[in-house]
Structure formats: C-alpha cells, structure tokens
C-alpha cells in the first residue's frame, strides 16, 4: 500500500545548525501516530518540513505517493496554539472558513456551501454556539477546538497536529481524543506531536520517537519500551523511570 507519508533522508537546518538529520519514514495510512521526543528534538520541525513551511537541506517528502507540494490539498494542519496572534480581528467562524480557502480559487469568496461545512465542523468540536465570538475571548481549550475544526474543514486525508493537547482542559482533551479516533476509524492518517508519556500508550496505535533523528518508529506496543524511551529522552526525564516501571509491570 502507498504510504500516507513518506520521507527520505529529510534533513533540516536553522542558521546552518542541523535540527533534524536524515529522516527516513513511511507512515502507512489509517493510523493515529504520536510523535514524541524531548524539547528541541525536532518534532515541530519535522511537521513543518513535511508541509514545506521550512525548506529541507536535503531529502524529499511524498504524500500519498506524490511530491508534497502537489499533495498539500490532502493535508490538514494544526499549528501550535501560540504560533498565531489571538488578538487578530477574526471570529471563530472566520478561522474555520480558512480551512476551506485552499479549495477556493483566486478571488473566489466563501459561499453558503463553505459556511455549511464550517458549521458542521464547529458542531463536531462543540463550538457552534461560539461561532460569532472574537477569538481573543476564548479559553485555551476553546482556541484549540477552533484550530481542530479548521483542520476538519480542510477535509483532508492526512492530518498533522502540533501539540493539540498543550494547555487544554481535561474535557477538551477527551473530546479531541474521541475526534481523532473517529478520524482514524474513517481511514484518515493522523500524526500528533505529543508530550505526555503517561497518556501516549492509550491514545496512539503507532509511535514515532524523535531526537534530532528517528530513534524508533512502529506499533506503540513495540516502541514504547524502557530502552527506546531512554534512548530518546536520555536521563533527562525523572518521570521516565516511573513510566519504565509501569511498562515493566504491564509486561
């Protein structure tokens, strides 16, 4: 089967300092994949390189077998919440409609059909009652739901999400997880940058461990081991030994 996402020798550098080395990856479609690694490991960079937001020094990216630049229409993107200015003069509906812009030609306006889709996506994340609200007047969890609704509106086959669980309340986190499972059940491929080791096993069926290079990629059951986590995080996480203990207990 054609991988949903394939990279070969993908290397990215900022100001000549490499932040991601030779990433070879083939993500099969229909999986919910957690991208994990310590701070500065290049998780966000990997997503941005796939989207073409940061240019790679070498290597290539294919999306459903096509060069990434031609297949971006099939990719939905959820950036980190802090990456945008929440004082920007747009309301919730405006932001979700942006997800449809890729399908509208130059100079074309959003119409009734786009609004209908946007409303349905807001409904799915429980934000329809706040559709007219200015985005500055949202809580962190609500902002994240808006971003998610926007990604849904893109009606993509591959989703790349950068820390959708960062700073959200427990209700929102549960709602997002349900939504991701639903997307997966519909055959979509979802890659999620994630920080919380304690929930990783429960959320994802595949894991990608990164630390400047790919440490491991595979089924969660095979990858979520003390040895590989140690290799990814080094001695840096105190929580690690606890997790390792849990893994052992389960094993």
């Amino acid at each position: 089967m054609t991988p949903a996402l394939e990279t070969h020798d993908l290397t990215v550098a900022y100001h000549k300092r490499p932040v991601l080395y030779g990433v070879d990856l083939a993500v099969p479609p229909g999986h919910l994949v957690g991208i994990m690694g310590p701070n500065g490991a290049g998780k966000t960079t990997l997503i941005k390189a796939v989207m073409g937001i940061v240019p790679p020094v070498s290597g290539w990216v294919k999306i459903f077998g096509e060069p990434a630049s031609r297949a971006l229409g099939r990719v939905g993107y959820v950036p980190q919440r802090e990456s945008v200015d929440w004082d920007f003069p747009v309301n919730v509906m405006d932001v979700v409609l942006m997800g449809r812009y890729g399908r509208l030609g130059l100079g074309r306006r959003v119409g009734a059909k786009e609004r209908e889709i946007a409303r349905a996506c807001l409904e799915k994340v429980g934000m329809l009652p706040l559709a007219d609200r200015q985005i500055a007047n949202l809580s962190g969890g609500q902002q994240q739901r808006v971003f998610l609704a926007r990604a849904l509106a893109q009606e993509s086959d591959l989703y790349l999400m950068d820390e959708p669980f960062a700073g959200v309340d427990a209700t929102t986190e549960a709602a997002i997880v349900t939504l991701l499972q639903e997307l997966k059940a519909r055959g979509k491929t979802i890659l999620v940058v994630h920080h919380d080791l304690t929930s990783a096993q429960q959320y994802f069926d595949m894991l990608l461990l990164v630390n400047l290079r790919v440490v491991a990629f595979g089924d969660t059951a095979e990858v979520f081991t003390e040895e590989l986590l140690q290799k990814t995080y080094g001695g840096r996480l105190t929580i690690l030994s606890k997790i390792a203990q849990e893994v052992k207990n389960q094993g």
Binding site: K48, M51, G52, I53, S69, L72, G73, V75, Y77, P79, S83, V84, D85, F88, V90, D94, V95, M98, Y101, G102, L104, L106, G107, R108, R109, R150
Partner: peptide, 20 residues
C-alpha cells in the same frame, strides 16, 4: 481579489503555506 491570501498569510503564515 487577494482578500483570502492577505487574511491567512497575515494571521497564520504556516497555514497559508500549507494551503499552497
């Protein structure tokens, strides 16, 4: 004519790139 492009690239340049 370029309202969408101006709006998205001002609000969220990364999304603008991903929308081509």
């Amino acid at each position: 004519f370029f309202y969408k492009e101006l709006l998205v690239s001002s609000f969220d340049p990364a999304l603008a790139t991903s929308l081509g």
